[in-house]
Design a protein around this nucleic acid. Structure first.
Lengths: 203, 203
DNA sequence: CGTGATCTTGACCGAATGGTCAAAACAGCC
DNA sequence: GGCTGTTTTGACCATTCGGTCAAGATCACG
């Protein structure tokens, strides 16, 4: 199976099922903690059948990560240099938080990878990621110099968006343990982060 | 070896060496990714010798975590209800960031545990951690109601301190990849976070 | 120095795990 | 129905890993 693009209906369906199952297992147990048997079971396939569609456990992991990188940066890509600065930044925060809500598994998969020192997507960080961040940081710096937002380091501003939004996905267990069952973390986070970033960047 | 407190000199030395080596390995590879052989090698002992001091891999991990929980909450414990609110909060941020600088391995160990759903310290989150946070949150709420700091949700304020400070330890690889080799992330973070929280809580 | 307790290790074990393979089952098409 | 390429699987393998054990080395102390 060195098929890059699934051709048949069955291939498309099974590759989807495998990647979805693998996302479950990898994000919950990390790369080493995940086993092919568990992934196979979750996907409703036999282990050899898994390995018919992907050459190795590593290949599944890489497939997930590279697929993730794309969508992961979308919220930042949408930051519009021509828009109203404060509204643009608050919109970015809201979009990023929405990703924590919609794709917590992806967030944890990413967190796991970075925590282990990014052995598989290290290179992509220094190219794809850095390039995009530098580009948007320049935009933000422009806004600062024009006096349209308060003076802040653009890179660390972006880091703070990542840290704060991803925290609610990655540390979900902790957040819920502290808040108690009655409260909705993500709902409250939306209001809190709105306030936080509004105070931070409004001139 | 059901010794709780090391008695002899050798025991003290070797248990220290093991826990330090285990911290290295666990924080870098996660629980499942860590092997007794690696830990033993890093500690300069043979594997059976390891298991003379600790009954199992799990026991080493638990020992690390419970030892960690203690020091991990120190910065928050020191938050003084009688102090000047803004200075107290900024001091908390600075202390917490200092922990990311001094104990990045511990931070990653903790992050790994929470990411996996806190299978080993889950209970401690809902008791020890929650109790402390609730207590300090009440203090902060008092400050808000007295008009001494700007109105913010105390729990999410604390979460934001955790998220922002731990991000620089846990996602170090990513931060460095984006910033480039010439910049010192922690140094810049200190100034940035000072600004951020000052703007957030100053009435 | 002798002796009992502490410490260390080589050899080994069973279970789990990533991966292989050849053969069977199946799908699509004439 | 028969043929070809695709899909599925049971049986199997080599390695890794957590953990055991019995015997030997070393230490503390009278």
């Amino acid at each position: 199976m060195n098929v890059q693009k699934p051709r048949t209906r069955i291939q498309k369906k099974n590759r989807r099922a495998i990647l979805d199952a693998a996302l479950d297992v990898f994000s919950a147990h990390g790369f080493r903690g995940a086993t092919l048997d568990r992934i196979a079971e979750a996907a409703g396939l036999s282990k050899p059948n898994l390995l018919y569609y992907f050459p190795s456990k590593e290949a599944i992991h890489v497939a997930l990560l590279s697929q993730l990188m794309d969508t992961w940066l979308d919220p930042l890509r949408e930051l519009d240099p021509g828009g109203e600065p404060v509204a643009e930044l608050l919109g970015y925060v809201r979009r990023k938080l929405q990703m924590s809500r919609d794709f917590p598994r992806e967030s944890r998969l990413f967190a796991n990878e970075i925590l282990q020192g990014a052995p598989r997507i290290g290179p992509a960080l220094e190219t794809e990621l850095k390039d995009l961040v530098d580009e948007k940081a320049a935009v933000i710096r422009g806004w600062v110099e024009a006096g349209r937002i308060a003076p802040v380091d653009p890179h660390h501003l972006i880091f703070s968006v990542w840290a704060l939004t991803q925290h609610y996905a990655d540390f979900d267990v902790q957040v819920r343990a502290v808040l108690g069952a009655a409260r909705d973390p993500l709902d409250e986070a939306e209001r809190f982060l709105d306030t936080l970033f509004a105070r931070l960047v409004t001139p």
